[in-house]
Amino acid sequence: MSLSAANPQMSTAFDICWPNGVEAQPATPLVFASPHSGRLYPDDMNPALDPLLIRRSEDAWVDDLVAEGPIRGAPLIRALTARTYLDVNRDPTELDPRLFGETLPAQARTLSPRVAAGLGVVARVASGGAEIYDRRLSLAEGLSRIARVHAPYHDALSRLLSRARTAHGFAVLIDWHSMPATAAPGIDFVLGDRFGASCRPALTDAVETMLTDAGYRTARNFPFAGGYTTEHYGRPERRTHALQVEINRGLYLDESRLETTADFERLRRALGGIIARLAAADWRSLLDA
């Protein structure tokens, strides 16, 4: 299996699935994001680790699971580049000193918990803790990845949220992820709102109610409280609410082979119904925007 699915000069870091396939005035304050479902591995990555082991870090097929979003009026931005190449759900200054062979910039956040775990903006390890590289990267490599992938993704996401605020007075970002089945045993979905800091409680309450009505088991903020995207954009006082939703991969995926199971379509239909309810909700009243 080869990881080479993109040219090293690749400039397309993301795409946006627009409602009806056309960019138009937002019909809803909702914006969907799938930052970790990217499947492209640029040629300049040159990993030493087995390709299947690297791919287990992907939030595989999450973008497909939430494809109802654009149908219901919520644009979906999805990273195309794999998170092990460049993780758009990290602060761009989260640089791992154990990965780079040079002195890092003074503003680098080398002591963050994510960097300590080897999961900075350029990951040092894959899912399970295996080292991705048998070499140190140059700082130029890391900064180039940030410029080509992280910066354009967040520029586009910021513009989507700005459009929603302009049209509706506020924006509601749902950041979709998946988690290993072992991460939260007995839990189907984990809702991360930075312990209430990234959105009004009504948003988390509403999503949790929709999930439990559909028969799913939920938890809040443990083991995932929300990453960089939720923390960076979730500013209720600035009329932007952000919620991270983690989906248990055991609901739809054979994690050893990264293949969907017979339950994939059932989950996609269930999420489609939940997304329809999200799109129909009176967010202005719920959020008191």
Score class of each variant (00 low, 15 high):
P105K: 07
G129F: 08
S162K: 12
E131G: 03
L137S: 13
G186D: 01
A156D: 07
L143V: 05
G118L: 05
I187E: 03
R165C: 15
S162A: 15
R165V: 15
A164Q: 08
W176I: 00
P113L: 02
G196Y: 10
P113G: 01
Y133S: 04
C199E: 12
R194M: 06
T182Q: 09
H168A: 04
A156G: 01
L111P: 00
F189E: 01
A167Q: 05
L211N: 04
A171H: 05
A171R: 10
I187L: 04
A151T: 15
G169N: 05
L160R: 12
D134P: 00
S127T: 11
L111D: 15
L173F: 04
T103A: 15
R136E: 12
D175Y: 06
V121Q: 03
H168S: 05
W176Y: 04
E141L: 07
G192E: 09
A181G: 02
T103P: 03
G196K: 01
A181N: 02
A183S: 14
L157V: 13
F195K: 00
G196C: 09
V149M: 04
M179D: 05
L143P: 01
D175Q: 06
R163K: 14
H168P: 05
A181Y: 04
T204M: 10
Y216L: 01
I187C: 10
L211V: 10
L161P: 08
H177Y: 03
A184R: 07
V125D: 05
A156N: 03
R135M: 09
G120P: 04
T212H: 06
R114F: 07
D205H: 13
A130G: 06
L160G: 14
G118Y: 06
D213Y: 00
G128S: 04
S162N: 12
L173P: 02
A164W: 06
D193F: 14
V122Q: 02
G142K: 02
A183Y: 11
T166L: 14
R163T: 01
A184N: 14
S138R: 13
A106V: 14
F170L: 13
S138I: 05
R114A: 11
L137K: 03
D188V: 02
Q107E: 14
R200A: 15
A202L: 11
F189Y: 04
S178Q: 01
S158C: 07
H154N: 05
C199T: 15
P185Q: 01
V149T: 12
T103L: 10
A214S: 09
R114M: 11
E131A: 11
S158E: 12
L211M: 11
L139Q: 02
A147C: 11
I187A: 00
A171T: 10
R109H: 06
T182Y: 10
S178N: 01
F195W: 06
S144M: 09
I146F: 02
G196T: 02
D193G: 09
L157Y: 05
A197P: 02
R200P: 06
